[in-house]
Deep mutational scan, measured.
Amino acid sequence: MQIFVKTLTGKTITLEVEPSDTIENVKAKIQDKEGIPPDQQRSIFAGKQLEDGRTLSDYNIQKESTLHLVLR
C-alpha cells in the first residue's frame, strides 16, 4: 500500500509499505529516499509519536494515510 510522509519543509514523500511493516522499517525506507538517519526521525500520526517496534497496523495506518516527519 502507499502512504505519504510530509516533512516540515512541506515536501511529501510517497512510500510503498505493508500494514505489517514496523515503524523502524518505514524510517529505513525514508532514509533510502531522503538520506535522513532513522535516529533523527520522529514520525507523528494523528497527533501521536510512533514507536519503532510497533507496526503500521498497530496505529491503524491505512493506505494513503499521511505521516508527519519531524527531525530531532
Rank of each mutant, 00 (worst) to 15 (best):
I30R: 00
T9C: 14
I23D: 00
P38Q: 12
T66P: 00
Q31S: 12
G47L: 09
E16R: 08
V70M: 10
Q2A: 07
L8E: 13
V5L: 05
Q49G: 06
N25W: 09
S57W: 07
K33S: 11
I13D: 00
D52F: 02
L67H: 02
D32V: 12
K27Y: 10
P38H: 12
Q40T: 10
E51G: 03
I61V: 08
I3Q: 01
V70T: 08
V26Y: 04
S57P: 02
N60R: 05
T66A: 03
T7F: 15
L69Q: 04
Q62Y: 08
G53S: 12
P37A: 10
S20W: 14
V5R: 00
Q40M: 13
K27H: 09
E51Y: 06
R54F: 12
E51M: 10
G35D: 04
Q41E: 05
T9G: 13
I61M: 03
V17F: 04
V17Y: 04
K29P: 01
E34S: 13
Q62G: 12
S65D: 14
Q41W: 15
S65N: 08
G10D: 04
R42F: 15
K6S: 06
P19C: 06
E34A: 13
R72N: 12
T12H: 06
K6C: 15
S43N: 12
L15T: 00
V26Q: 00
G10Y: 03
K29L: 10
Q31G: 09
E64V: 02
I13F: 13
I3K: 01
T22G: 02
S57V: 06
T14P: 06
A46I: 07
Q40Y: 10
I61S: 02
D58H: 10
P19S: 08
S43L: 15
T55C: 01
L69C: 04
Q62A: 10
V17I: 03
Q2I: 15
A28S: 10
F45R: 07
L50W: 03
L67Q: 00
K48Y: 10
Q31V: 07
A46P: 05
N25I: 14
P37W: 13
L15S: 01
E16W: 14
I44R: 04
T14W: 06
G35T: 03
F4H: 09
K6A: 05
Q62D: 08
G35K: 06
A46M: 14
V70C: 07
K63G: 12
K11D: 08
D58C: 02
I36T: 08
H68D: 08
Y59P: 03
P37Q: 09
I3H: 01
L15C: 01
G53R: 08
Q49F: 15
L71G: 08
K33Q: 12
R54H: 11
K48H: 12
E64L: 11
P19I: 07
I36G: 08
Q31P: 04
T14D: 03
E64K: 08
E16H: 10
G47W: 06
F4T: 06
E18D: 12
Q31K: 10
K29S: 03
I61Y: 00
L67P: 01
Q49S: 10
G47M: 04
D32T: 11
T55Q: 06
D39P: 08
M1W: 07
S20V: 05
L50H: 02
D32Y: 10
M1P: 00
G53E: 09
I3W: 01
Q31E: 09
L8P: 14
I30H: 01
E34V: 14
Y59S: 03
E16S: 09
P37V: 06
K27C: 08
T7H: 04
F45G: 04
T22E: 01
I13N: 00
D32M: 13
Q2W: 11
T9I: 07
N60K: 08
T22Q: 02
L67A: 00
K48R: 11
P37K: 09
P19M: 09
L69S: 02
E16N: 11
V5W: 01
G53A: 10
L71N: 09
E24L: 14
D21Y: 07
I13G: 01
D21G: 01
T9P: 03
D52G: 06
V70D: 05
H68R: 07
D58M: 03
D21H: 04
E34K: 05
L69V: 08
D39Q: 11
Q41I: 15
D58S: 13
Y59E: 02
Q41L: 15
Q49I: 15
T14I: 13
K6Y: 05
I36Q: 07
Q62C: 04
R72G: 11
E51V: 08
T12F: 09
D21I: 05
K33A: 12
Q49L: 15
L15R: 00
L71E: 09
M1V: 04
T55R: 09
S20E: 09
I44D: 05
E34Y: 13
L71D: 08
R42Y: 15
I44M: 11
D52I: 05
V70Q: 09
Q49P: 12
D39S: 13
E18A: 12
N60V: 03
A28G: 08
K33E: 09
I23Q: 01
K29R: 10
I61H: 01
R72P: 11
E18S: 14
S57D: 08
S20R: 08
V5Y: 02
K29A: 07
Y59D: 00
I44W: 14
T7E: 04
E16D: 11
H68E: 12
E24H: 11
L71M: 12
H68I: 15
L71S: 10
T12C: 13
T12Q: 06
K29W: 04
L56S: 00
D52W: 05
K6P: 03
P19D: 05
S57Y: 08
I13E: 01
G47V: 03
L71V: 12
K11Y: 11
I44F: 15
G47C: 09
D58N: 03
R72Y: 12
T22N: 03
L8F: 11
T9H: 12
S57Q: 13
K63F: 06
E24M: 12
T9W: 14
E51W: 04
D52M: 05
T12R: 08
K63I: 06
Q49N: 11
I13T: 02
E18Y: 15
E18F: 14
D52Q: 04
K27V: 08
Q49E: 15
L56T: 01
T7N: 05
D32C: 08
Q62N: 08
L67V: 09
V26L: 12
K11Q: 08
E64F: 14
Q31F: 15
G53K: 11
K6R: 11
I13S: 00
L56V: 06
P38F: 14
L67N: 01
V26G: 02
K33W: 11
R54E: 03
Y59C: 02
F4S: 04
D58Q: 06
H68F: 14
A28Q: 13
E18K: 13
N60D: 10
T66G: 02
V5K: 00
T9D: 14
M1E: 02
D21A: 06
F45I: 09
G10V: 01
P37M: 08
A28I: 13
L56C: 01
V17E: 00
Q2M: 12
I13A: 02
L69W: 02
D58A: 04
L69G: 02
R54S: 06
A46S: 08
K29I: 05
T7S: 05
N25M: 15
I36K: 06
A28Y: 11
L15D: 00
R72M: 14
R72L: 14
Q49C: 15
E51Q: 10
S57C: 03
P37D: 10
E18I: 11
Q31Y: 15
K63P: 15
T12D: 02
Q2T: 14
D32K: 13
V70Y: 11
A28L: 14
L69D: 02
I23K: 00
Q40C: 14
L71H: 09
V5E: 02
E34G: 08
T14A: 09
